[in-house]
């Protein structure tokens, strides 16, 4: 039996909120992103309710996140925020500090790079699935994923490589 839109939102809001936050790195923006995606989903609810509405919402968030007007907003934000690589190095043993480091490092990525990171390493999608979700080629996904890791390694090596010694080796 088809669930109602309200039931869907109640059940899936926590997971969707987490994805929205990882995509934006900001609670206010994440709420905005999720709200827009849910509004779009509601307008097409009759058509998608018997399919996979959660996938629809996620795709809506990814597309909105990488669209040009949101890129502009992130560009503005990037210019306002200090680069974490130039900040003092946090203590890797402190989880809270690491989360802050992650948030700051993700802000150094382009929206599409960030979306690829979230889809690949949080949603655990394959590159082909990521390409399908973002509406681009697998090669593009590979390129964005590679560029994202290079940048993360540069600005926050502790996120990508657990120990500096391993990197040196």
């Amino acid at each position: 039996m088809s669930q109602t839109f309200h039931e869907f939102v109640v059940h899936r809001s926590p997971a969707l909120s987490r994805t929205a936050y990882l995509l934006t790195g900001d609670h206010q923006l994440a709420e905005d992103l999720l709200q827009s995606a849910l509004a779009r989903t509601y307008r097409h609810w009759r058509r998608i309710r018997d399919g996979d509405p959660e996938a629809y919402v996620r795709r809506a968030m990814y597309h909105q996140q990488v669209s040009w007007w949101r890129r502009r907003r992130f560009t503005e934000r990037l210019e306002a925020d200090p680069a974490p690589g130039r900040a003092s190095h946090p203590d890797p043993s402190d989880a809270t500090t690491l989360r802050m480091t992650l948030a700051a490092a993700l802000r150094q990525l382009t929206p599409r790079q960030r979306a690829v990171v979230v889809l690949r390493f949080y949603e655990d999608l394959t590159e082909a699935q990521v390409a399908a979700a973002l509406g681009c080629s697998v090669g593009t996904v590979k390129r964005h994923g590679h560029d994202a890791l290079v940048r993360l390694r540069a600005v926050a090596p502790e996120l990508v490589d657990r120990a500096p010694q391993r990197s040196a080796r």
């Binding site: 939102v9 809001s13 909120s17 990882l22 709420e31 999720l34 390493f121």
Partner: peptide
């Protein structure tokens, strides 16, 4: 990523 996501509350945007 999972650790950070776990700290995110469910947004009440319905």
């Amino acid at each position: 990523l999972h650790d950070t996501a776990a700290q995110v509350p469910a947004y009440q945007v319905e």
